[in-house]
Simulated scan of single mutants.
Amino acid sequence: MRNNPPPLAYRLLLGQALRAHRERAGLEPNDVAKALGWYQRKVGFVESGHRKIAMAEAERLSELFQLSPAERERVLNLASEARRRDMVTPPVAGWALEYVAVEAAATQVRVFQEELIPGFIQTASYARAILSTALVPARDGVEAAVTARLTRQQRITGPDAPNVHLLLGEAALRRLVGGPKVMREQLRTLSEFAEADHVTLQVLPFVAGEYAALGTSFMLLDVGEPCATFALTETLVDGEWYDGPPYLERFTAAFERVASASLDVEDSHALLLQVRDEIKE
């Protein structure tokens, strides 16, 4: 994986792989618990990426699921990396730690945001305005959260950045977060970001009318080799992860339909610049 992602990213990948292998083997969580002497809830914790396992347990699971040599090697590698110690905990909400971990490991990021510029390309002033309105205060204060958000941006804009396909509702361009000056700066930054070779930016205009996923912003993150995909939706208080059928198929289909309903890259950039120029400081 890229950018030396944190152990949590490996735990999530390991959990997803173990669940897929268990289901392929026709086993229930209780079967695994009995075979390894676990309590049944531990199976759920491991498969959701919230619990580390010992290397001996990874070996036993490989035998139980009758994995091929290549599958066994991947499971053991993931288990080993997952046991590393996290050196730094970002100042974000608990549920968002998973997103930060997966984002750090992603090879492709697909985002649909109706109303908001995504955190990975927010300016400091825009991020500060958003974070200052949060009902749940940032753990270490707004300024620490702004700094953490800007640091994370290096993974999206740096030399080893993932491919990014960003779909924005027109409202995300027109909502004056932080006021006219802040918004002009944000749109200028977004315009520069959209010109990067690894970025595809499309805007879904108001005139598109109704569309798939209306009222639902979400992210799709592709991680690892072989690729594993995670979908994330956010609410006022937390985030919800989806990493299996039929959910991923539906999120992927929704993303593709929104992309088809959006302006092409050239017209999207033109609309972005038009909106920026319409804002008077």
Rank of each mutant, 00 (worst) to 15 (best):
L150R: 10
L272F: 15
S68P: 04
P159L: 13
E256D: 13
V111K: 02
L271Y: 06
A228C: 01
A93T: 06
P226L: 00
M1Q: 04
Q202I: 06
A106G: 05
R175P: 06
T133M: 12
M1T: 03
H198N: 12
A104N: 02
E103F: 06
E278L: 07
L201C: 11
P91V: 02
L187S: 14
A101G: 03
R188I: 05
E225F: 00
Q186V: 07
R257G: 07
I121A: 01
R110M: 01
E240Q: 13
H21V: 00
E115A: 13
A194V: 12
D140H: 09
V75I: 15
V142P: 04
G26C: 12
L168Q: 05
G179Q: 05
Q202E: 10
V177I: 15
A138R: 08
E143G: 09
R184L: 08
L14P: 14
L18W: 14
S132I: 00
P246F: 13
P118F: 05
L13Q: 15
S80H: 08
E256M: 02
W38Q: 09
S62N: 08
V43C: 10
W241Y: 09
P6M: 12
L271K: 06
G119N: 14
E225G: 00
T123Y: 14
S125H: 04
P180Q: 13
R110T: 00
L190G: 10
V111L: 03
M55V: 09
G119P: 14
A25Y: 04
P91N: 05
F112D: 00
P118W: 02
A231F: 00
R175H: 15
A144R: 08
A58T: 08
L13Y: 01
W95M: 01
F45M: 15
R184C: 10
D31H: 13
A196C: 03
A9R: 07
A208C: 05
A259Q: 11
A134W: 15
G37D: 14
